[in-house]
Computed example of a mutant assay.
Amino acid sequence: MSNNKNFFQNVVSEMKKVSWPTGQETARFTMIVTLTVIFFLAFFYVLDLGITAVIDFL
């Protein structure tokens, strides 16, 4: 049981060392991820349309 207690004490100790992002950083990172996902969504959609057109042409 003391091993579990020591484990959780170590977890708490390590979590205090974590550098959490600010709200502004979180919002900026979220926007970057969202725009990246939208970009790749559009890219692969256009790629899919092109491949479909080529297959239909053949």
Rank of each mutant, 00 (worst) to 15 (best):
N6G: 05
S19E: 07
L41K: 03
F7I: 13
V12R: 14
K5V: 10
V46I: 13
F7V: 07
M31H: 11
F8W: 03
V12Y: 15
M31T: 08
T30W: 12
Y45L: 14
L35D: 03
T22F: 07
M1V: 14
P21R: 00
F43I: 04
F8G: 00
R28P: 00
F40T: 03
Y45K: 05
M1A: 10
T36D: 08
V46C: 09
F43K: 05
F43P: 01
S2A: 11
I55C: 09
G23M: 12
T36F: 12
L47F: 15
I38R: 01
T26K: 12
F57R: 12
R28A: 13
I51V: 09
F40E: 06
V18Q: 13
D56Q: 06
V12M: 11
N3W: 15
V18Y: 02
S19V: 00
K5Q: 13
T26E: 11
V54R: 00
D48H: 15
L49D: 11
L47D: 15
A42V: 12
S2P: 07
T36L: 10
F57A: 08
L58F: 08
T52C: 07
T30G: 11
G23W: 02
V11H: 01
I32V: 14
T36H: 08
T30V: 05
S13Q: 05
I32P: 04
L47A: 14
N4R: 05
F57C: 06
K5E: 11
F39D: 02
V37G: 00
F44C: 11
G50I: 10
V33H: 10
F43V: 03
S2V: 15
A42F: 15
V11F: 07
D56H: 05
M1W: 14
I32C: 06
Y45D: 06
F57D: 09
T36A: 10
V46Q: 07
L47K: 14
F8M: 06
T34F: 14
P21F: 03
F40P: 04
M1N: 13
L49Y: 12
V37A: 07
T22W: 04
I38M: 05
E25S: 04
P21K: 01
T36W: 10
N4I: 03
K5R: 13
N4A: 01
R28C: 05
D48F: 15
L58V: 05
V18P: 00
V33Q: 02
D48K: 09
T34I: 09
N3M: 14
N4G: 06
P21M: 02
N4Q: 03
